[in-house]
Design a protein around this nucleic acid. Structure first.
Lengths: 348, 348
DNA sequence: TTGAAAGCGCTAACAT
DNA sequence: ATGTTAGCGCTTTCAA
């Protein structure tokens, strides 16, 4: 591999001159420039970015930490981030934390040691415990957080995030608009989806409706199975819900199948709202009404914010950007029917 | 940020001694080691990995190039790779090519300039055009390829790959075992899934059965929609298939819905085999029989092979490892029924 | 406009 | 067992 010194020798100039034509900072005479360019071409010279990085204190590498990319939500976010960085000739170092606090810590440490230019961090279940360390890191290198739904929003970092509370409200509002009232249920992962729950609850409250505790089912995970089981629990209770808000699409799919297995027709007997708008939500039977969250927009905004901060160099004031979701109305929601019309014993 | 020199001064030794206690190569007296360790602790010293990399010619960063991670297949592969690298304290630089030749070229170039230690490359639609460049890179830094299904398997690289031909055979064999014969159809993306097609075809041929051209549908993409449309085409033809092999699960899902919309019951009227074993394949109605490909195993093997090569340093002989898939038998396949028993006009 | 020297923070090779 | 010297390949002063 030819080095800059090789090129310089070959062109009969010094390293500095080569550096100048490469970076275009200083002015170089046409003639010299040509000589240098020719030498570069001839030797197939390519700059060593590590050396440049050491010298400049910049690596052109950013990192993103996410719980996992097996979940399509995060993989889309990461994909978007990578694409934007590609345009800016920056590289993306991917770290998956798997909700493992120590793993995240190790990763952060290495990233810092590697002189990474900036960090994008999606919250995971245990990341709060790393806040002190993150703050420390943040003093030297820019960090932007996202997907932070847990209770006290950290005030130390800039963020681009989903307005989860608002998203939950949307789900509630949609159901109310359809005419659902006192038999509205929610299936949510606790404590992860606290804000969605609260938003949902507040929407109902604004119309004077209180979520019945019997219709409020907390689950430990957000899986098809937990959705299925939660729905079974709901269907075997005293009050059969007229509508269910599941705080992830996967849980909604579980609810949907549980409903079918219980002989309930969607949306006739039961309205169902999901959350995420995963790809397959459009292909369920019936297609799932769900809350579409602007993940790609979030990814873009956070990446650009980070890039801006890195470019400016000086520590920037904290900035928080909250993004609003929207309801994807499909066919899993409808007006509740009066009990006479909807008794499934008579209506097949 | 404290440097090694700071630590040395603080401990009253030289940089070299600090380096020695850090890397454990040379022997250091207990007493000195303690002093150094104390200084490190006190100053909160962390080694600058960029400097180390420049000096050693190693960066502890590997790259993976995949077409996209929006597709769960690749995101799982990447996730697995990242986890293994994490254990080895190496970082993963993620590059998505989006089947864009120039983008892939740019990315490779930067990776080389960044002195990356090794490259994992999943084939995309246009990557063949980059083979010459890849070969050039391969002379300096180890490359392992995977997911290479297109016709001439490149003989320049080591590889860990799916045996696509065998996988296709499995699908054919399964259908034959159930008793399907002359009304077997295939829906495949062309030219991407050439090997799956050939394997499928060869399995049938081994029993003297030829795939009817009318039942061989090529699609341009592997989407739900293209699966749906291909199935419609099939159902409107002269010969109604007794079984369909769709070369991706997503296409199979499209086929499944098309079948339902055409009034065909699965598996009674139509057997359906998918390919990939994506998560939701287990949750369709009926659950989808599909070919499960060992993606995580592939990811592990290729990553470890790459790590081994990097560790050994010397150029290694070419190695190709082909992995076998297996049939996930679920409920979308069954024996074909005789026309009398299965005429759906009589059997509801 | 170009050259010379110093330095980024580390490791490697040799000397002590 | 520890210190000294010399790089790794680039950028950043500062001279010429």
């Amino acid at each position: 591999m030819a080095t800059m010194a090789d090129v310089a020798r070959h062109a009969g100039v010094t390293k500095q001159t080569v550096s100048n034509v490469l970076n275009g900072k200083a002015v170089v005479r046409q003639e010299t420039r040509q000589k240098v360019l020719a030498a570069i071409e001839e030797l197939g010279y390519r700059p060593n970015l590590i050396a440049r990085g050491l010298s400049m204190g910049k690596t052109s590498s950013l990192a993103v930490l996410v719980p996992t990319i097996a979940n399509p939500f995060y993989s889309e976010v990461v994909e978007e981030v990578e694409s934007i960085l590609e345009e800016h000739q920056q590289n993306l170092i991917l770290c998956t934390t798997h909700d493992d606090r120590q793993r995240a810590h190790r990763q952060l440490q290495i990233l810092v040691d590697k002189q990474i230019d900036g960090i994008l961090l999606a919250a995971d279940r245990h990341i709060e415990q790393e806040i002190p360390y993150l703050v420390e890191i943040g003093m030297h290198i820019p960090i932007i957080i996202c997907c932070w739904e847990s209770k006290p929003y950290p005030d130390a970092f800039s963020a681009v995030d989903i307005d989860y509370h608002h998203a939950g409200q949307l789900a509630g509002q949609h159901l109310l608009d359809l005419g659902h009232r006192d038999r509205i249920a929610i299936v949510f992962e606790s404590p992860a989806h606290q804000s969605r729950l609260e938003g949902f609850r507040s929407a109902l409250l604004s119309r004077g409706i209180e979520l019945s505790p019997a219709l409020t089912i907390a689950t430990a995970e957000s899986t098809y199975r937990s959705g299925y089981q939660a729905a079974q629990q709901l269907f075997s209770g005293n009050i059969v819900p007229s509508a269910i808000f599941a705080t992830t699409d996967w849980m909604a799919l579980g609810v949907m199948d549980a409903a079918r297995d219980a002989g309930l027709r969607i949306p006739k007997d039961l309205s169902l709202v999901g959350f995420d708008d995963v790809e397959q939500a459009a292909y369920t039977h019936p297609p799932l009404t769900t809350i579409a969250i602007p993940k790609r927009e979030m990814a873009r905004e956070m990446t650009e914010m980070l890039l801006r901060r890195i470019a400016q160099g000086t520590p920037q004031p904290r900035l928080v950007m909250l993004l609003r979701s929207q309801v994807m109305v499909r066919n899993s929601t409808a007006a509740p029917c009066s009990s006479s019309k909807c008794n499934r014993a008579y209506d097949v």
